[in-house]
Design a protein around this nucleic acid. Structure first.
Lengths: 143, 143
DNA sequence: TCTTGACCTCAAGTCGACTTGAAGTAGAAC
DNA sequence: GTTCTACTTCAAGTCGACTTGAGGTCAAGA
């Protein structure tokens, strides 16, 4: 009986209790039982929540993450899915890198207007032709 | 009179006409006039749309982007804002890099279950303690 | 002149991930 | 035994960026 109260889980995982209820509704987590009305959780739920957070950061939707858990609760992560996401991330990273460098340049550029700066214009052309746009899945928002 | 019809702009910019109307409502673009009911645009709108797309990719909201245009239509981009966003992007990039490497490892890892893999567990711990999570602003979704 | 079809307006809907609010309940402290 | 308070349920609201639908208009081609 080392179960954790929902408040404890919320605190340790750094998410509001409402999120835990929401995740339960989505089938992502489940309490071991109740004490009165209050949900009690196995400490393992913390690992699971970490896994969920990780998946979200990697760009998976909650539904996709839900599908990654086998009925027995064990994660059954498709290795091909991981590779594919890693490749997508890699593309995103490269695009964001170009963007970061361009922003830095624009910030330092002495041209009176950005539109008169060649580097900025080149970036703009790239964006217009789809070279920089299309960053793929988004990571979740910071809390 | 080299103005472009809304359909032409939509086609060249690669966005639906509804988006152009929406941007107009938001104060991001404006037609030079109408031909009948149809909006006509100065070709410069394409550059402006590219700038908007670029801003979105960099993680700015439409409202923020709107504020970047001076009343005269010239972009008045705050250099400090650009630097700040570049730094944020840089952090995001580094985080995503860690994540990508971890995903690759997990995809290749021979451990029977990911939970038994040390690398994966370390990643999980990092995620749980907020080291990997919190990627900041999200770039826009791919079309 | 008539038809066609692409545009027009305005309100409402969508999507994902949660949050908020109202009304209820039960364990624990007094 | 009563009160307090943190939980409970369920429905509805929020946010950003658009999209969709209904009903209307007008320039251009036949």
């Amino acid at each position: 009986m080392t179960d954790l109260d929902i408040a404890e889980v919320a605190h340790r995982a750094g998410v509001p209790a409402s999120t835990l209820r929401f995740y339960e509704e989505k089938g992502l987590i489940a309490p071991t039982g109740r004490r009165g009305l209050r949900r009690q959780y196995d400490p393992g739920v913390l690992e699971r929540l970490a896994l969920i957070a990780l998946g979200r950061t990697a760009g998976f939707s909650l539904d996709e993450i839900a599908r990654m858990f086998a009925p027995d609760g064990q994660p059954r992560i498709d290795r091909r899915m991981l590779s594919a996401r890693a490749e997508e991330l890699d593309r995103t990273i490269r695009e964001l890198g170009v963007l970061r460098d361009s922003l830095r340049h624009a910030a330092a550029c002495p041209a009176p207007s950005h539109l008169e700066c060649d580097t900025f214009r080149r970036l703009l052309d790239a964006a217009a032709s789809g070279g920089v746009t299309a960053p793929g899945r988004r990571p979740p928002e910071r809390r």
